[in-house]
Design a protein around this nucleic acid. Structure first.
Length: 831
DNA sequence: TAGCTTTGTGTTTTT
DNA sequence: CACAAAGCTA
């Protein structure tokens, strides 16, 4: 139970441990760790041991007696980071992390709000809407105000509302600032949207932050309680904070000198100003969701007495990689000057490979991966990064063909699958009877003879009488305009729900509750009845969710045990300091739902043997891999077209910087000279970012024309080509190259050496393109009866029929089902 | 009402 | 292409 070594929990032991913590830290790191009271800014370059400093600082505060675990609030942006930090702190101090608030901004705010919901007009069982739910609500709000939701994309309106909330603006305030018709419309939609949310006792992601700020700003006694409780506040990735988060931190630590509103107020006695932030302005890549780099750039203005520590020694990468990173980021203006260096030697040059199209690019990357694996590299040492999620698909297909196991981080999210969301909606409705989004979702799933019209009447009735949807649905005969069939169906449905709710009230734990829901609502039965491959997959997902429930039950049982122990050991003042003591405890089901709704990807990735990892560059932030591929480095893709249009090139460049600095030993860059976008073949030009990498760091190669194998040396007359876009006025968009002729060739300037290729001169580009297409098709897209094939999502199968027009029939091994596939489009290939 | 087909629409990044 | 929403039929 208690790890050995815990007997050393003495003052002397702790001070010895505090000293030991400093071993192996460099000078600046040590300064950051040992800094005592007052504001602290740690400017931590990529790979400079930021997490190490943060975790060691926490341990140091504990070992030196500067703080109790419960007095520490350590905030991260992602759950992954929070989990990692907790593990690493635990490895330093043992299980004393239990009482510590070590979580994401959103999770911390949710916890704050659950405990004080009444003060803001919510009940503690409020629902947290994810962004899909929120979008539906926005759409409905647009319809309510009579706006054409076709002309005004709900997603755009949603992002405007979100931006307003991040700036702590109320709907009314937005209206005042509204300049044009569109702003006017947004603010109207905002008003309706917010009213709907509140009626549902629901909040969206942005509300979590906004309401937490409101709570602390409007209720000084609550604010003081939390300030007292958290004597030390630590924030990771500070460069990604938005205005709401910034205000929250100010309120918690009272450093708000820069806020005029606070200047008038007498400084609170509870202000401790123990705010330690860690960040890197060069890695600020969340501007699109309201992050303000200015928060980190202005930290010293906010806290003139702040201690500033700069970490520039990198412990991750070789100097080829760091030089490239330094050179790229130097093209941005106005950042905090930093220069990364490491003692890890020069390392290997970065490779840059030009490929014909995305398919060739994918096979190239995969063949390189295969080569590395053959040489003994572990799968888990390799990451493949790209700008947008959709770009991962072709890589996935190639990996599947090569039978290389991989994982996609953050792609299709487990908790966003329809069946999982359905079940979550059942659970949510059980805890929040006002949640009509959940009600609408579950009432027709599975089908039970209740249609759109019926639902609308129930909802309208609830709103007009002022009761919850639950109550309205429980008494369907009171709802005007319902036919006897609808009344009967509703009653039956609500009887089931009432039964489930009483199970919940009797204290049944989460896992068994999920099972009851699946069985008693007929959800599982309906799926089983389908007898399709997809349904089987859904059932599997639901089984996983049951497991997650049981797992949660087990964990929360452990936690209660630990909390009990901690309370016995802690001194009486610690109990008083528990900020949650003032509010009601969230029920286990609520905590489960919160965990689920605030968790992006299913972090239960199975890593035992290691998997090749695929993800977007954003998802890669904070991670490191010995070998990194960055793909699709094409102008318009990365930097993304929309970023170019919006003049956000610097943020894109920071994203590239993030990507480069993920690599420890090898960095491989690729781009395709043409790519299918929206299903259309588009010629592309290499990313302008590539030109920012000094040529001596790069090893260039061109693939995709390997026919004769004869290598070409191309004279000065043919030196256009590969890098011809350099210096040309338009880097933007997809400049149309006719055929391929213009792109073949090499740049003498860069020491490029073509390994093989086609002579470009005098050829007919269009004809060659046709040739390339047909040879491509001929290689992999002809099928015969009896061929063994593999499909990206359906798995292995055998061709049982060949029809005209490239249609084949495949029987899949998984479930024995037969399906018709169009070979041109289906992600299927011979094996 | 429900299931099917067709049509249209669109891809940045995420708590 | 993929997915959502609208339209159509039993």
């Amino acid at each position: 139970m208690v790890p050995s070594g815990e007997d050393d929990l003495t003052k002397a032991g702790d001070s010895r441990r505090a000293q030991r913590l400093l071993e192996g830290l460099n000078g600046p790191q040590r300064e950051a760790v040992t800094h005592q009271e007052g504001p602290l800014l740690i400017l931590a370059g990529a790979g400079s041991g930021k997490t190490r400093v943060l975790t060691h600082r926490i341990a140091f505060l504990l070992f030196t007696g500067a703080a109790q675990p419960s007095q520490i609030l350590a905030i991260t942006f992602t759950n992954k980071a929070a989990i990692e930090m907790r593990q690493r702190v635990e490895s330093l101090i043992g299980p004393r992390t239990r009482g510590m608030w070590l979580m994401t901004f959103h999770a911390a705010c949710a916890r704050l709000l659950r405990a004080n919901a009444q003060l803001l007009g919510y009940t503690p069982s409020f629902t947290i809407c994810d962004q899909a739910d929120s979008r539906r609500l926005v759409k409905r709000s647009l319809e309510q105000i009579g706006a054409d939701s076709k002309r005004f994309a709900p997603a755009l309106v949603q992002s405007r509302i979100s931006a307003a909330k991040n700036r702590l603006l109320q709907p009314g305030e937005l209206a005042e600032q509204a300049g044009g018709d569109f702003e006017e419309l947004v603010s109207q939609a905002f008003t309706v949207y917010q009213r709907e949310l509140e009626q549902m006792n629901a909040v969206d992601f942005d509300d979590l932050l906004l309401l937490a700020v409101r709570l602390l700003a409007r209720h000084p006694e609550v604010r003081d309680r939390y300030r007292d409780a958290f004597q030390h506040v630590l924030v990771d990735e500070y460069q990604d904070t938005n205005h709401a988060q910034y205000r929250l931190l100010q309120l918690l630590t009272d450093g708000a000198a820069s806020q005029p509103a606070d200047r008038d107020r007498p400084a609170s006695a509870s202000a401790h100003r123990n705010l330690a932030v860690v960040g890197d302005d060069s890695q600020s890549v969340y501007g699109f969701r309201g992050a303000q780099v200015s928060n980190i750039l202005d930290f010293e203005k906010d806290f003139p007495d702040a201690k500033v520590v700069k970490l520039e020694q990198n412990y991750r990468s070789t100097n080829f990689i760091l030089s490239a990173a330094n050179a790229v980021i130097a093209n941005n203006r106005g950042g905090i000057p930093k220069r990364l260096w490491s003692e890890l030697g020069e390392g290997e040059p970065i490779t840059l490979t030009s490929l014909q199209d995305e398919r060739t690019e994918a096979s190239f990357v995969v063949s390189e991966v295969q080569r590395l694996l053959d040489e003994g590299t572990a799968r888990s040492e390799i990451a493949i990064l790209y700008r947008t999620n959709a770009l991962g698909r072709s890589i996935e297909e190639a990996l599947t063909r090569a039978r290389i196991e991989y994982q996609v981080v953050g792609g299709a999210k487990f908790y966003e699958r329809a069946e999982v969301k359905d079940l979550i909606a059942y659970l949510t409705f059980l805890t929040n009877p006002y949640d009509l989004v959940s009600f609408e979702r579950i009432v027709r799933s599975p089908r039970r003879g209740i249609g759109e019209a019926t639902v609308a009447k129930v909802v309208a009735h609830a709103a007009s009488v002022g009761i919850s949807v639950w109550e309205a649905a429980c008494a369907p005969e009171q709802v005007p305009g319902l036919g006897p069939a609808a009344v009967k169906a509703l009653r039956r449905f609500m009887e089931t729900m009432t039964k489930l709710r009483s199970e919940l009230e009797e204290g049944v734990s989460v896992g068994p509750l999920i099972e009851s829901v699946l069985l008693e609502t007929g959800y599982l039965e309906a799926l089983e009845h389908e007898r399709t491959f997809e349904a089987a997959g859904r059932i599997e997902n639901l089984e996983q969710l049951i497991d997650a429930g049981h797992d949660f039950d087990k964990r929360s049982g452990d936690d209660e045990l630990d909390l009990g122990q901690a309370a016995m050991q802690a001194d009486p003042s610690a109990a008083r300091a528990d900020p949650l003591a003032a509010g009601p405890q969230a029920s286990p089901l609520q905590r489960f739902l919160e965990e689920v709704s605030l968790r992006g990807d299913a972090d239960g990735r199975r890593d035992e043997d290691g998997l090749v990892t695929l993800m977007t560059l954003h998802n890669a932030k904070g991670l490191e891999y010995p070998i990194v591929f960055i793909t699709a480095l094409e102008e318009g893709v990365f930097p993304h077209m929309r970023a170019i249009d919006a003049g956000e090139l610097e943020e894109e460049r920071r994203l590239f910087y993030v990507g480069i600095t993920r690599a420890m030993r090898q960095l491989h860059l690729t781009f395709a000279r043409s790519r299918r976008v929206f299903g259309e073949l588009t010629a592309s030009v290499q990313s302008s970012f590539l030109e920012e990498i000094p040529e001596h760091l790069l090893r260039l190669q061109e693939r995709g024309f390997a026919m004769g194998g004869s290598s070409l040396s191309i004279g000065p007359s043919a030196q256009k080509g590969f890098y011809e876009e350099r210096g040309s006025p338009a880097h933007s968009g997809f400049s149309a190259h006719s055929g391929l002729s213009a792109q073949v060739g090499s740049s003498g300037r860069r020491g490029f050496s073509a390994q093989s290729g086609f002579s470009a001169r005098g050829g007919n580009g269009a004809a060659r393109e046709r040739w390339a297409a047909s040879s491509d098709a001929g290689r992999s897209q002809t099928f015969r009866l009896g061929d063994d094939v593999i499909h990206a999502s359906l798995g292995e199968g055998v061709v049982t029929g060949v029809e005209t027009d490239g249609v084949i029939v495949v029987r899949f091994a998984n479930d024995g089902s037969e399906r018709k596939l169009i070979t041109e489009y289906a992600p299927v290939s011979r094996r």
